[in-house]
């Protein structure tokens, strides 16, 4: 008598996990899929760039060719050039800069540097933000002296938000050697506040949800409740912010490089190619527009994907 609503029919093995549902919704968003496509293509380019400029040097970004300064894109290499210094096909695909370096090779090298800075910096900020936000949300009521853990962490977060981040980065970068790793760490350690804030907010609301109470009633240990029950349900907005955060980190690195505080030569990043190019904007506009356009495209792609993910995760759009 009690088996009526348990529908003994429809025993199809097909099942819809929340991630699969998310993926299906995301696929309907053409702009987001375009962004994803561009990013995948750029990721391939970045990996190939790393391989062909450093491991198996097909495109050498460091060769100086004083006879071939300021060559426009698609122009042929000079006949005076020694064979060892010739570009791969004898053509400068994206022209050369003021030292006759191949811009195509430099862009290839820079793509890996720029993207890895974006991803590592965001990885650091997610790690810091999730840990601090999670502690504040789950153990918030524990007291240390007169203040709660929650107060301590969130007021620190507020303090960090009050500091103009870009100037903080400038100060730190001016004091530390400007290596790629320092820049990754500095950008990562100054961008976690938003993440910690909404991880905390998610945890506060999840902590009172019945399924979390049920997990506690089952006597599950705290780490299991946090990592199996709460974290997966709090990660969706973190992913969205992270996606857009990669774009912001790449922009920040470009801005730092533009001001001369970023990754130092001979390492090429899109930012410092752009910075060098600005001096020759009228004589050799490609030096300026090529890296600028690349930054524009990658930031746009990350933003389109991030927006699409936000939409796909919106519970009002998801059918039950």
């Amino acid at each position: 008598m009690h088996a009526q609503d348990s529908s003994t029919g429809s025993l199809i093995a097909h099942t819809e996990s929340p991630w699969r549902l998310f993926w299906q919704l995301l696929q309907r968003d053409r702009l987001a899929m375009a962004g994803l496509g561009i990013l995948l293509a750029l990721a391939v380019v970045a990996l190939l760039g790393k391989a062909t400029t450093e491991w198996l040097v097909i495109f050498d970004p460091t060769t100086v060719r004083l006879v071939d300064k300021f060559r426009a894109p698609l122009s042929e290499a000079s006949a005076l050039l020694p064979d060892a210094d010739r570009p791969l096909t004898g053509v400068y695909l994206l022209g050369t800069d003021e030292l006759g370096r191949d811009v195509f090779a430099r862009m290839l090298q820079g793509s890996f540097v720029s993207m890895s800075i974006g991803f590592v910096a965001v990885g650091i900020s997610i790690a810091v933000g999730v840990v601090l936000g999670g502690i504040a949300g789950y153990y918030g009521e524990v007291r240390i002296g007169p203040v709660t853990v929650d107060t301590l962490i969130m007021r620190f977060t507020d303090a960090m938000l009050c500091i103009p981040i870009f100037f903080l980065i400038l100060v730190v970068v001016a004091l530390l050697p400007a290596s790629i790793y320092n820049i990754m760490i500095v950008i990562g350690l100054t961008r976690w506040m938003g993440i910690s804030r909404f991880v905390r907010a998610e945890f506060l609301s999840l902590r009172e949800q019945d399924f979390v109470l049920a997990a506690r009633a089952l006597g599950l240990p705290a780490y299991r409740i946090i990592f199996w029950h709460m974290m997966p349900n709090a990660m969706a907005p973190v992913l969205v912010t992270a996606t857009i955060g990669v774009a912001t980190a790449i922009l920040t690195e470009s801005a730092l490089s533009f001001l001369g505080f970023g990754v130092q030569p001979p390492f090429a990043t899109w930012g410092n190619i752009l910075a060098d190019g600005k001096n020759f904007i009228f004589d050799a506009p490609w030096l300026f527009f090529i890296p600028g356009f690349a930054i524009f495209v990658i930031v746009l792609a990350f933003n389109l994907l991030g927006e699409g993910m936000r939409e796909a995760l919106n519970p009002k759009l998801q059918r039950r």
């Binding site: 996990s17 929340p18 019945d210 399924f211 109470l213 049920a214 009633a217 089952l218 006597g219 349900n233």
Partner: peptide, 25 residues
């Protein structure tokens, strides 16, 4: 000891939607 005791005492909630973790089978 409380965790051990919890095996004997369980709870069924009102809202059948929020009481099940949406990310678990």
């Amino acid at each position: 000891d409380l965790q051990r005791m919890r095996r004997d005492i369980q709870i069924v909630f009102q809202d059948p939607y929020s009481s099940l973790n949406p990310r678990m089978t």
